[in-house]
């Protein structure tokens, strides 16, 4: 009884700001402009043109998630091995840039990468001709990795520091060397962190539209740009909602697959 009373504000909040909008999106996705039921919006998305856009978005997101993992895991490992004082300082260094606005940080990269930017100015000191760094696939991936890396490092780090030290000691006592211990004990135990890290990086990467527009120079449409244009330029809310539904389905499926790996339901699981 008591519990129910306390949950009323949260339930109201969730209904107004999460459930209701979701139903609106669903409604728009399955209706025509006149409001009658249709599947055309969804069918229209399965045109090779739009599927191409989807494949490209997923590819870019996968590449940046992989880079985040390769960079982020060792980083989290190193930080977790440091003593407490150094550990907190290092984590703080990771979090401080996130206090700044995300767009501001992305704009900063534009001035670093551009033709008369800092990198090219530096290279010109050695007589190297200006490189085109901005407005490439590489710049987009760099932007994603830079912006989303903390989302990979933090969950892995949280899991790593919680691992029971006696398990590692037991592994050494039983004759395993450092590498075997890592592969057989530490890494499997840190998997929940890795999985939430992957989901937390993959999701914003696959739906971003700001990074691809600013650092990619709008060279290609990603799924986020496509949805944005349906709502803002074309005014086709029905098609825009249908694409959003497809995206939601993809994300839900990938989370389900991820959770299969994470049998123990331990660690910092978001869901």
């Amino acid at each position: 009884m008591k519990r129910q009373a306390y949950s009323i504000p949260y339930l109201t909040w969730m209904t107004i700001f999460a459930v209701l909008p979701l139903f609106l999106v669903l409604f728009y996705a399955f209706t025509t402009k006149q409001g009658s039921f249709t599947l055309d919006n969804l069918i229209r998305f399965f045109d090779p043109l739009y599927l191409n856009v989807l494949v490209r978005s997923i590819n870019l997101a996968l590449v940046s998630t992989l880079i985040c993992l390769i960079l982020g895991y060792p980083m989290a490992y190193i930080i977790s091995k440091a003593n407490i004082k150094a550990r907190n300082t290092l984590i703080l260094f990771f979090i401080i840039p996130m206090w700044m606005n995300f767009l501001l940080r992305t704009y900063a990269w534009m001035t670093i990468l551009e033709r008369n930017g800092i990198i090219n100015k530096f290279l010109s000191l050695f007589g190297i001709k200006p490189l085109s760094l901005l407005y490439t696939n590489g710049a987009v991936i760099l932007g994603m990795v830079y912006n989303f890396l903390p989302f990979m490092v933090l969950p892995i780090y949280t899991v790593l520091i919680k691992i029971d030290k006696s398990l590692i000691e037991a592994s050494y006592d039983l004759g395993a060397n450092k590498l075997t211990t890592f592969i057989k004990v530490v890494f499997p135990l840190s998997l929940p962190g890795v999985i939430s890290g992957i989901t937390m990086v993959f999701m914003p990467s696959v739906t971003t539209f700001a990074i691809s527009r600013l650092l990619g120079g709008g060279q290609f449409t990603l799924i986020g740009n496509l949805i944005e244009r349906q709502f803002i330029n074309v005014g086709d809310w029905n098609f825009g909602s249908a694409i959003s539904i497809v995206m939601m389905a993809i994300i839900l499926i990938s989370i389900a697959i991820m959770n299969k790996f994470d049998k123990d339901k331990e660690g910092v699981n978001l869901w």
Binding site: V53, T221, N233, G235, F239
Partner: peptide, 14 residues
């Protein structure tokens, strides 16, 4: 007819 323009623009970008 604007959706036709959008389709073309998407094709150009894709």
């Amino acid at each position: 007819y604007l959706s036709e323009y959008d389709r073309i623009w998407t094709e150009v970008k894709a």
